[in-house]
């Protein structure tokens, strides 16, 4: 168990180093950092001095080490656009994105899993067919279109819910939350549904497919032959087995939700990281982009590690046989 965790940790560090290398290359070699910082009328001598001061004349390896050292402390330099430390800007935006992503993920799970189980158990029912048809729409419609449609219906036509922003927020230390105010909660509904819809339908279809697969197995037939009640067979045995692969996909999808919140945040003017990164790309704000890249990579790696540990906890076969790392990134 300890060896397993250590092995996964080493792999995670390797992934983070690789991403750090890309972020560094981006930071250092896409455009000239000095050019981006100084005005047009700065003399060549001043530029050379600044270059010296920033350590940009040192060997690349040393610069990379310095970049990593700072990144580990959350120091990604100064944003070209805002002329403020990147860490600070991201810390401001992070709670909005995380709240939106986690609410969306919970929504996707809370609706997707039960619907998947229902359609798996009642394959030919009318409701199942309706849900399946509906899920095709969810899988195939692009996120921005869903967001805009929701805004048209619920904000413009019905006027029930706000179409942009995060509403009023409450500060808890450095974390700002919109979950404690009525306007914050109202603002969260449309973006959360927009962000969750694709994942919801994906999880539902996955759970359904896994349920159908598991229900065909001998151990389910044998469980019925043992005279166990349907509830115990369907939920205790079938669902638990069906959820093993679902855990992996859902974990990866949570990472994807955080990363792809960009589109939803842009549609809803949600003051999170995704909105920030879109602005940063427009402005060629390299430090923000590099920091965002590393942060998203960190979330992916951390979620993967947790998923692996969960897998380990759920499936006894992995606890004995070695080589549980087959289900990683």
């Amino acid at each position: 168990m300890i060896a397993f965790i250590l092995r996964r940790l080493v792999q995670s560090v390797a992934v983070m180093l690789t991403v750090g290398c890309i972020a560094f290359l981006l930071f250092r070699y896409v455009g000239d950092p000095v050019n981006n910082m100084v005005g047009q009328d700065t003399s060549l001598a001043d530029r050379a001095l600044l270059r010296q001061q920033l350590g940009l004349t040192d060997p690349a390896a040393l610069q990379f080490a310095r970049f990593l050292g700072r990144a580990a402390k959350g120091d990604f330099g100064v944003s070209y656009q805002y002329a403020r430390p990147v860490g600070e800007i991201i810390a401001e935006r992070l709670p909005a994105t995380l709240e939106l992503s986690i609410v969306a993920a919970l929504l996707a799970l809370a609706v997707g899993v039960p619907m998947g189980v229902y359609t798996g158990l009642h394959r030919t029912g009318l409701l199942s067919r309706l849900v399946m048809a509906f899920s095709l729409i969810g899988v195939s419609l692009p996120t921005f279109l869903i967001g805009i449609l929701l805004i048209v219906v619920f904000s413009v036509e019905l006027g029930w819910l706000p179409s942009f922003g995060r509403g009023a927020v409450v500060a808890l230390g450095w974390w700002t939350t919109g979950l404690l105010t009525a306007s914050g909660l109202k603002s969260l509904i449309l973006p959360a549904i927009t962000l969750a819809l694709f994942q919801m339908t994906l999880i539902m279809r996955l759970v359904r497919a896994e349920m159908l697969e598991v229900l065909r197995t001998d151990y389910i037939k044998f469980a019925r032959a043992r005279g166990l009640p349907n509830r115990l067979v369907n939920f205790g045995h079938a669902l638990k087995n069906a959820l093993v692969p679902v855990i992996t996909i859902t974990g990866l999808q949570l990472g994807a939700i955080i990363a792809f919140a960009i589109i939803t945040e842009t549609v809803f003017q949600w003051p999170g990281m995704g909105f920030l990164i879109v602005q940063a790309i427009g402005f060629a704000d390299i430090p923000v982009m590099a920091a965002y890249l590393m942060l998203v990579a960190f979330f992916f790696v951390a979620i993967n590690l947790i998923v692996d540990l969960l897998y380990y906890a759920v499936d006894p076969r992995l606890r004995i046989e070695r080589g549980g790392g087959a289900y990683g990134l």
Binding site: D218, Y219, K221, A225, R226, G227, P229, N241, V244, D315
Partner: peptide
């Protein structure tokens, strides 16, 4: 019928490798 299964009529299937749920002791 369920109350009869297991209680009055037991069943043994062909493949013992797949007759038991892998996730439970």
């Amino acid at each position: 019928m369920r109350r009869l299964r297991g209680k009055e009529i037991g069943a043994i299937f062909q493949d013992p490798l797949t007759s038991l749920d892998p996730l439970y002791t």
